[in-house]
Amino acid sequence: MRFAAKFEFLDEIREFVGEVARAGGFSEREIYNIQLASDEAASNIIEHAYAGISNGTLEVSCEVKNGVMTIILVDHGAPFDPSEIPTPDLTADLSERKIGGLGIYLMRKLMDEVHYKAEPEKNRNTLTMIKRKG
């Protein structure tokens, strides 16, 4: 499913992955977490990969096979590897607390696997997230 890379479409992206997860038999708690991880992933792509670009697109595909959900997000913006973003210090006090990297941290914690592949020669970045039924 192709979406315009705009925050206004996050609702639809969450709905789309949520429907597939529900049909695949995931629990309501797992569905919420899958939606949250997908939102964080898409938000990062819109904010960073497509920084300053207003007509970007985001292709989201997902399937559930043998109790394993695979979500693939493809963009054509600047490469942005989530694994290069340092884990935020979650014990820092209020004044020291940084919010950057929190979305990626949540993605990694909520999903079982997160993989990223940049193919600059094809102008294509692929983020793959995997969640196994609990």
């Binding site: 949250l36 929190l102 949540l106």
Partner: peptide, 19 residues
Amino acid sequence: EYMSSAGFRALLAAQRNCK
């Protein structure tokens, strides 16, 4: 119904300012 880290960010900024 739902809050992503973007909402957490708004809460954190407010907490800093209020405290």
